[in-house]
């Protein structure tokens, strides 16, 4: 079954002419090619549609003869199935799995421009602000993180992309060479750069590839798993970083700690939710 319709999952023999004018069952015109060597491991996974293809992707890559397109397809198909990406992270190909995970979650954001995208952005912004504000706390975490570094990552060189690629390559089978992975690697590193915090990028040499993205991916996953909980999540986040929440005009909830800690001072509230703030002296431009 080397060719498979990506839409309905119907399989065609290699060299079959049936599929030349589209899938006779569903009319779909996208097919994936699955070589025989990959089929042994991946056969059971291909039964369903996209949901289980995460493991198929890993299996195909491990098989080594898969064309470059295969991992991309499986990454794309994973967009709705992050839990399975997480599950595959424990299969031994940790770094590649987590990269696929982060790129998958990126795809997810692009696919769903509505509430999900906003929530993901909110979470990301919040995490970023949090890490900037709690400078000391972050340093403590860094120390903790260093001790939990995977030996795998610390063994390999110092520059950022190189150790990841070699780690990735060694985690996979020997058959797949680095040259075969440019798309996947560059995409993953872009996703990683985007997801790292301001501080994260400055010390990525010490940060194992798997440390940041899974954290990020996990946060974005949460609303996906329990979509009804999204509202609660947003409310919880609001309560954590807003100093004044306007429930409706004339009804306010105040976060006293936040009001106390913020340097600028809210001098007037407006009905549309805008604040007028007094800019503290410390914000003056240096050239004055």
């Amino acid at each position: 079954m080397p060719h498979q319709c990506t839409n309905c999952g119907r399989a065609f023999e290699d060299g079959s002419k049936e599929m030349l004018s589209g899938c006779p069952d569903c009319g779909g015109n996208k097919f994936q090619f699955l070589p025989a060597s990959a089929m042994d491991g991946a056969e059971p996974a291909n039964g369903g549609a996209g949901a289980t293809s995460a493991s198929a992707g890993v299996g195909a890559t491990t098989g080594g003869t898969a064309p470059k397109k295969a991992p991309e397809d499986s990454a794309g198909a994973q967009s709705g199935a992050n839990p399975s990406a997480d599950a595959s992270a424990s299969t031994g190909a940790e770094s590649s799995a987590s990269k696929t995970g982060s790129s998958a979650s990126k795809t997810e954001e692009e696919d769903r421009p509505g509430a999900m995208n906003r929530a993901a952005k909110t979470v990301r912004d919040w995490v970023r602000t949090g890490s900037e504000e709690t400078e000391n706390g972050r340093k403590a975490t860094e120390n903790g993180r260093k001790t939990t570094e995977r030996p795998n990552a610390s063994e390999n060189g110092t520059s950022e992309p190189a150790p990841e690629d070699t780690a990735q390559a060694s985690a996979r089978s020997d058959i797949v060479t680095e040259a075969e992975l440019p798309d996947d690697a560059s995409r993953a590193s872009t996703a990683e750069t985007e997801s790292s915090t301001a501080a994260g990028t400055s010390e990525t040499a010490e940060t194992p590839a798997a440390a940041d993205p899974p954290e990020d991916a996990e946060v974005i996953d949460t609303p996906d798993e329990n979509a009804p909980g999204l509202k609660e999540l947003r409310e919880e986040l609001n309560s954590q970083f807003e100093s004044i929440r306007i429930a409706e005009p004339g009804q306010y909830e105040l976060n006293l700690m936040e009001l106390f800690e913020r340097e600028e001072y809210i001098i007037a509230l407006q009905e549309d939710g805008k604040y007028v703030i007094e800019v503290p002296d410390g914000w003056e431009t240096p050239d004055r």
Binding site: S243, Q251, Y252, L259, F260, Y265, I266, I267
Partner: peptide, 14 residues
């Protein structure tokens, strides 16, 4: 009054 009171709390905390 509610809005002004809220501004007042912010001022007090500041």
């Amino acid at each position: 009054r509610s809005r002004e009171a809220t501004e007042g709390v912010a001022e007090a905390m500041h």
